[in-house]
Design a protein around this nucleic acid. Structure first.
Lengths: 265, 265
DNA sequence: CCATCTTTGTGCACGCGTTCACAAAGACAT
DNA sequence: ATGTCTTTGTGAACGCGTGCACAAAGATGG
């Protein structure tokens, strides 16, 4: 998963726990699958398995939305799809702009999961003049000079940032100033935004690092000696203030470290 | 953030809380930034701000790794970079395969944040014969027939799935059978894996849906009447078992609903 | 109409994560 | 050497999220 969520104490909107909100899209996906196969009803047990969660958790999650099940039977698939869609705000149309049309931006523009859930790509924006006019996913790329104009004309409130890290904050500021109040950030930077603006971030390399941690643990059962000396004792073996082991990474990374280097932006 | 994590009770490896592990890459990024600017030391306050977290949380996180700070001064940047890198397992080389070379797969292959953190793209794999041999990010794409061979020859333990949803489970099974024990899944499906295999998932559309929820709340302060009737009472207004409102989404989505449609795979 | 059986909805307890607030540790000046 | 000042490391309290286990609700069959 990408990690994410901002520092704010998790809006806690009208009693629906943030953790539940994060799972609703999961349920929705499982439910639309069932809907396509014309399954009329599901039990919490079946749906929970399909969504990869615990059935008790699922029932509790649904209880925050209301009593939509029928005891002894289960949940009506179509009805639940509608209710969750409505709760998530997917019954209305959300115009979205994607800024930074590199590989990632193009992948996002082509992503089918957006359009089918009420998200409409209003515009693709890139800072490279050479990109302007070039169609990506059937939509012509527009130059970032027109960013504010595009936001206002289309009433865009959600922006996706897929630029290099260096440009992200600046793009973010412009989006916010133009009226965007929700941002999905793919650039590896911490964005600072005013109150009232939501930011979620997806960091590709963070997920991989978390996997590496667990992978190391798994392997470390055997090679404990080399891999993991007790960290509490490490501080003692060197000088206390400027330890000897510093900078031991063999390959020092260049300044491109934080750059996705994926998108020309 | 991308969401993610699997049902398993969060390995809880050697006392380092999962939540802390998930933040270590964040600290590492902030620290490498400071390192490049040759900043020798940071206080927990400064670093916390740079990483976008609370300073108490940061100190507690570091306390799980050991006592690496100096009271009255702060933390030695280089030393901390090394310690976190080591803890995350980034001081060793992790060969990775990416399966599914569409737009997203290509974006991942080009992503600079991988190589700089000890991840090496051992191979790009795609099921489309037309892709075979074509270089992406300087690496020739190989056909998925060779998947097992590639995994074994390179000792790959981490796999990235960027295929359409329909192919994901099958690819996953083959990866696992060939020896992969950590999977980063970008396909919108719940993967089932045997014990001992870690899965993290990144779902682009889920993040957007969560944003839409909060966006709706923000807007809903005004248009309460239409947007959010009390859900507990909704169940009463229709028939109890098969409610009237079902299927009210105007645009029914096709079967491509779950398909990223991004990558030919 | 009653009994049985299935499945929901939730009260409760527990554990993890977050935050506060402060004592202890050390740097630095005198 | 002693005092002051800064900043860490952590004990303790709190709140959220999870999962168990069960009572209530309703369907279904006789």
């Amino acid at each position: 998963m990408a990690t994410g969520r901002t520092h704010r104490p998790a809006t806690r909107s009208r009693g629906i726990p943030e953790a539940t909100v994060a799972r609703l899209p999961l349920y929705l996906r499982a439910l639309t699958g069932l809907s396509e196969r014309s399954v009329p009803t599901v039990s919490s047990e079946e749906l929970a398995t399909a969504a990869g969660v615990n059935s008790a958790k699922l029932r509790k999650d649904f209880s925050y939305l209301g009593s939509y099940g029928t005891r002894g039977v289960g949940y009506d698939v179509e009805y639940l799809v509608y209710q969750i869609s409505r709760e998530l705000g997917l019954t209305q149309d959300w115009p979205v702009v994607i800024v930074g049309i590199g590989n990632l931006g193009a992948a996002l523009a082509n992503y089918g999961g957006f359009a089918s859930r009420g998200f409409r790509v209003a515009a693709l924006i890139d800072a490279d003049p050479a990109m302007a006019g070039k169609p990506v996913a059937g939509i012509p790329v527009r130059h970032s000079d027109q960013l504010e104009e595009i936001i206002r004309d289309n009433g865009v409130s959600i922006g996706v940032i897929a630029t290099p890290a260096g440009a992200a904050q600046q793009v973010c500021d412009r989006l916010v100033a133009a009226g965007v109040t929700s941002i999905l950030n793919f650039a590896p930077t911490v964005l600072s935004v005013p109150d009232g603006v939501d930011v979620r971030k997806v960091d590709l390399s963070i997920e991989l690092q978390i996997l590496a941690f667990h992978e190391q643990r798994k392997a470390g059962e055997d090679v404990r000696d080399v891999a993991a000396p007790p960290p509490t004792t490490v501080a003692q073996d060197g000088a206390s203030s400027r330890p000897a082991g510093a900078g031991a990474r063999t390959d020092r990374e260049g300044p491109d470290d934080e750059l996705p280097a994926v998108m020309p932006a």
